[in-house]
């Protein structure tokens, strides 16, 4: 199959992605570093990292739509929740194998998102945010009441089939999924399509005035975002083993996703990953000092301070730090 590999390489390097050798090196280092983690850290830390990986997947999903095009989605927990509930219902109630239920969950998420949220892309700004928030609240109220025999009502669904055994395997699965999603999103955003989405976030009228159908572009961004959210949600559900409406269709879930993106840096791939790991580990580090609810208070306050200090997130803080260091050297 030299033809396929060659085509792939030419497509990747020749197409709009503009890949350079240092990109391959940095990605290889990043992937190797993540895969070596089980050798370096303990099991407890690995479990924390699994949560960070899933949060990073959701954050990347949010960023592809909201971070780029500026259409702030308050409904991402809804998408993640559809993915989780679909695979849970299929495996537990209808005996589907996970190999079938997860792809179906992704499709259902894309389809569900399409029906519910696509009309909302016609409207702008706060209105879009509000509709997505209302959709999430709607699901929270609907899921427990409609067909509780399927959804398990407020108690949710438990004893989902596990995909892996042991902390290390759970970690490998989560980290590989995250890396695949990140790499895919990175490649996609380096194409001209990524540029166009970024342009929509700055001036949607001008994008239309450049002859591009913004509705089609936004729909595409939305579908990719929904597919990633559904994929992450489905795998996450199997990792958790138990899902409840409160664990998904909740404003705190939304908060974590958005904060991860903003703290890390919207409109980048590394940003949401850094943000997710930072926030998850911050919560863990605070645990010994603040065992109770105070943690969430401090956690929220730190998030707000970083956001007020630099709305472009940690990525921008690091970049300006590097620039300053370089400036000091010369």
């Amino acid at each position: 199959m030299p033809g396929l590999a060659q085509t792939l390489f030419i497509t990747a390097s020749g197409a709009g992605m503009n890949l350079r050798p240092h990109h391959f090196i940095l990605w290889a280092l990043f992937i190797a570093g993540m895969l070596l983690m089980p050798e370096l850290v303990g099991r407890g830390t690995l479990r924390t990292m699994v949560f960070a990986c899933y949060l990073a997947i959701f954050a990347i999903s949010w960023d592809i739509l909201s971070g780029r095009t500026g259409y702030i989605s308050f409904g991402h927990p809804f998408l993640v929740g559809i993915g989780a509930y679909t695979t849970a219902i299929l495996t537990r109630r209808y005996g589907f194998p996970v190999e079938a239920s997860i792809p179906i969950a992704v499709l259902v998420t894309m389809f569900g998102g399409l029906i519910v949220l696509l009309p909302a892309l016609r409207i702008k700004g706060s209105y879009f945010a509000l509709v997505t928030l209302a959709v999430m609240e709607l699901m929270y109220q609907l899921v427990p009441v409609v067909r509780p025999d399927l959804t398990g009502g407020t108690r949710g669904i438990s004893r989902l089939p596990a995909l892996t055994r042991g902390a290390e395997n759970g970690y490998y699965l989560a980290v590989c999924l995250m890396l695949a999603v990140a790499l895919f999103a990175w490649l996609l955003m380096r194409t001209r399509l990524g540029t166009a989405l970024w342009a929509i976030g700055q001036n949607e009228e001008s994008v239309r005035g450049s002859g591009l159908s913004t509705t089609r572009l936004k729909s595409f961004a939305f579908l990719v975002s929904a597919a990633i959210a559904g994929l992450g949600g489905a795998f996450y559900a199997h990792y958790l083993g138990t899902i409840t409406p409160r664990a998904f269709f909740d404003i705190n879930v939304l908060f974590q996703i958005i904060v991860a993106v903003l703290i890390g840096g919207a409109g980048t791939i590394l940003g949401p990953i850094i943000g997710a790991f930072f926030m998850v580990f911050l919560l863990e580090w605070l645990r010994p000092f603040l065992p109770g609810q105070e943690r969430f208070f401090v956690y929220g306050a730190i998030a707000l301070l970083i956001y007020m200090y630099q709305p472009k997130g940690i990525m921008a803080i690091i970049e300006s730090g590097i620039t300053r260091l370089r400036g000091a050297r010369t």
Partner: peptide, 22 residues
Amino acid sequence: DPVAVEISTLILAVIMQSAVVL
């Protein structure tokens, strides 16, 4: 900046919620 205010108010609301729980 409407997006920034929207997001910071969301963060603030969640902070207040945890303050109340506290």
